[in-house]
C-alpha cells in the first residue's frame, strides 16, 4: 500500500512538474509590469518556483507545531518524528526560497542581497530553524529531545506567522520594500500566471509530502534499530 501511494505521488508530481514547466516556458507571456520596472518581463516567472517554496515552508512550520502539540499531549514518538521531518524539509524549502529570491534580486536590482525587509525576515526564519536543528542535535536523551523540540516548534510557528505574514505587510515596511509581492497582491499578473502558479504549487507540495513521508519513516526505523541494540546490550 505504502509503495503504491509513493508511486502515485511520484507520477502525479512528475506530470505536474512537466506540465507547469511547459506552460510557464512556452505559454505564459512576459509580465508587463515587470518588463517596465526591471527590463525583463520573463523574470516574473521565477514566482512559479519562489512563491510555492516559501508558502510550503511556512505550512511545514505550522504543521510541525501541530504535531509538536500532539506529541506533548499524547507522548507518542511518531508525532515527534513527523514534527522533526516537517521542520527539516521545511527548512530545505526555506533555503531554496531564499536562494531563488536572491537570484531574482540579482536580476531585478543588480545585487544578490540588499537586506530588503523580505530578505531580512526570511533570514530570521532561517536562523530560527537552523537553531532548532542545532538544539535538537545537541540533546541526547530522546524524551527531552522530543519535548524541547515540540515546544520550540510551537514558538517557532508563532514567530513564523510574524516573519511571513505580519512584518512584511506592515504599511511602513511595505513603503521601503522593493519586493514585488505588491504587484502580485493587487492582481498585477494575468490569469496564465495564476493558473501555472497553482499547478506549480501542487507539484512542490507533493514533493514535500513525499520527502516528509520518507524522512519520517527513516526516523522510525533508525529509532527501532537503536532500541533493539539497547535491548541486546541489556541481555
Amino acid at each position: 500500500m505504502r509503495r503504491w501511494t509513493s508511486f502515485a505521488i511520484n507520477i502525479t508530481m512528475g506530470l505536474l512538474i512537466l506540465v507547469a514547466f511547459a506552460l510557464a516556458f512556452f505559454w505564459v507571456p512576459p509580465a508587463k509590469e515587470f518588463a517596465e520596472k526591471y527590463g525583463n518581463g520573463h523574470i516574473a516567472k521565477i514566482v512559479f518556483v519562489h512563491v510555492p517554496l516559501a508558502i510550503v515552508s511556512f505550512l511545514a512550520f505550522i504543521f510541525a507545531a501541530g504535531f509538536g502539540v500532539a506529541y506533548l499531549i499524547k507522548r507518542n514518538v511518531r508525532w515527534d518524528d513527523i514534527s522533526y521531518a516537517l521542520v527539516e524539509i521545511g527548512w530545505l524549502y526555506a533555503v531554496l526560497a531564499t536562494a531563488t529570491g536572491a537570484y531574482f534580486s540579482k536580476l531585478a536590482w543588480g545585487e544578490w542581497w540588499s537586506w530588503d525587509p523580505r530578505q531580512t525576515t526570511m533570514f530570521l526564519v532561517l536562523l530560527t530553524y537552523t537553531a532548532y536543528l542545532l538544539v535538537r542535535a545537541s540533546i541526547e536523551d530522546q524524551e527531552r529531545k522530543a519535548s524541547i523540540s515540540a515546544v520550540y516548534a510551537i514558538l517557532g510557528a508563532i514567530a513564523s506567522v510574524f516573519f511571513y505574514w505580519v512584518i512584511p505587510y506592515l504599511p511602513t515596511v511595505m513603503a521601503v520594500s522593493a519586493h514585488p509581492s505588491g504587484i502580485i497582491a493587487r492582481g498585477g499578473l494575468d490569469f496564465s500566471y495564476k493558473l501555472v502558479l497553482r499547478l506549480s504549487f501542487l507539484g512542490f507540495l507533493l514533493a514535500f509530502v513525499q520527502l516528509v513521508r520518507i524522512r519520517a519513516s527513516i526516523l522510525r526505523l533508525e529509532r527501532q534499530r537503536i532500541e533493539l541494540a539497547l535491548k541486546e546490550m541489556e541481555v
Binding site: 514547466f21 510557464a24 516556458f25 512576459p30 525583463n40 518581463g41 520573463h42 523574470i43 516567472k45 521565477i46 512559479f48 518556483v49 519562489h50 531563488t100 537570484y103 536580476l107
Partner: peptide
C-alpha cells in the same frame, strides 16, 4: 534567452 533565468531557477 530572456526566459533563461526562470529555466535555470526551475
Amino acid at each position: 534567452n530572456e526566459a533563461l533565468p526562470f529555466f535555470l531557477a526551475w
